[in-house]
């Protein structure tokens, strides 16, 4: 089925969207004094208590912020990078007191763990992996999956973390004969991992055995789609992909996310929901994040748009604030907050 045959989510006019769906909670004013490259939320343990902290990253500094009260944040740790710039934060669920970051110039060259010494609480870095890293994702149970190399010499590795940030266990997954572009853990089926490839396939692995279970070619209209989430229910796989290259049409508007349903037994797939912008909104997908059933995207127009995948329509639009376009959007891993970053480095925290 092509994109044109997919059911389109309702496209309410911008005026009908409830702005109350997003409430500003607090703000980090230009925390790094330079352009932000990423933001994330994680748990950090101090004096025996776990606190929900914010991690901000610019090219040469990663900072950890702890809450002073419901409105204010205090910078408690800073890691500096003088040789290779920071590209992104890699959140790893179930891990406390450890931040993973990817470093490189355009291409990812290193993955590092950032942590603090237990003795003097000083910041330190541990090199976890180096090479031609194509894709990576933090997984449940303190694991990180990464792929290095291209199709003929591709290596897909799972690292499990020890408390001190070092890798305590390494396991290889069977590589497909296509270069992996993105990974997604499958909610609802423990030990299933999904990947998308550069030539339009979806692959599934068994994380426990390392087996490559299935390679499924999907319609060419999903060319080089990035997978943001996967759910397994009643024998079917529901996969959320973004559509950075999708063409705008009069009937469908500007598609940003798409929900595919795949039967992993037969490798047949169909698009079931197309998340397009409300009427009157322009822009294409720039970057985005999906958590449970809500999908958020920064658009080329500088606006952030949010869709509820269960309701099937756009539920909130966040236009640029103070004439500053949005450049980052992330769901918090610690609560139902949305972290929104501006080009000048300001970070805003909204309750959704």
């Amino acid at each position: 089925h092509s994109t044109e045959q997919t059911e389109t989510a309702d496209r309410p006019a911008c005026d009908n969207l409830n702005p109350g769906n997003l409430q500003l909670v607090s703000e980090l004013k230009n925390p790094s004094s330079s352009c932000s490259v990423d933001v994330s939320a994680m748990w950090w343990e101090r004096a025996g208590a776990k606190e929900p902290c914010i991690v901000t990253a610019c090219e040469d500094v990663v900072s950890l912020w702890k809450p002073l009260n419901s409105l204010q944040w205090e910078k408690v740790h800073t890691w500096h990078f003088t040789e290779v710039p920071v590209l992104q934060i890699v959140p790893v669920p179930d891990v406390y007191n450890l931040i993973c970051v990817a470093l490189g110039s355009l291409e990812i060259r290193e993955i590092r763990a950032l942590l603090c010494s237990s003795g003097d609480d000083s910041e330190k870095q541990v090199l976890l992996k180096s090479g031609d890293i194509k894709a990576m994702l933090g997984l449940t149970k303190r694991r990180l999956v990464s792929s290095t190399g291209t199709f003929c010499n591709q290596q897909i590795q799972i690292m499990t973390f020890a408390d001190d940030g070092s890798s305590k266990d390494e396991q290889l997954l069977m590589p497909p004969d296509e270069t992996v572009l993105t990974f997604a853990e499958v909610q609802g089926t423990q030990e299933a991992l999904l990947g998308t490839t550069t030539v339009n396939s979806i692959v599934i692995w068994n994380l426990k055995t390392g087996q490559l279970l299935k390679k499924m070619h999907i319609d060419d209209s999903y060319q080089a789609s990035v997978c943001h989430g996967a759910y397994s229910e009643k024998g079917l796989l529901f996969v959320v992909v973004s559509q950075p290259c999708a063409k705008e049409s009069q009937a469908l508007g500007s598609p940003v996310f798409q929900l595919l349903v795949i039967n992993p037994k037969t490798a047949q797939s169909v698009g079931v929901l197309l998340c397009s912008l409300p009427q009157g909104q322009a822009g294409r997908f720039l970057e985005g994040d999906v958590k449970d059933h809500v999908a958020a995207a920064v658009l080329t127009s500088g606006t952030i748009a949010i869709w509820d995948l269960l309701l099937g329509h756009c539920t909130a639009l966040l236009p640029p604030v103070s004439d500053q376009s949005w450049s980052l959007v992330k769901w918090s891993g610690t609560d139902s907050h949305l972290l929104a970053g501006q080009k000048d480095g300001n970070i805003f925290i909204y309750r959704y």
């Binding site: 997919t6 059911e7 089926t189 299933a192 087996q211 279970l213 039967n263 169909v270």
Partner: peptide, 23 residues
């Protein structure tokens, strides 16, 4: 949207594919 076109569905797809795939 009908899922009839997707072929027979198995609730145990993960276990079945794991037993069929090469180790």
């Amino acid at each position: 949207c009908s899922t009839a076109d997707l072929g027979p569905i198995s609730l145990n797809w993960f276990e079945e594919l794991s037993s069929e795939a090469p180790p």
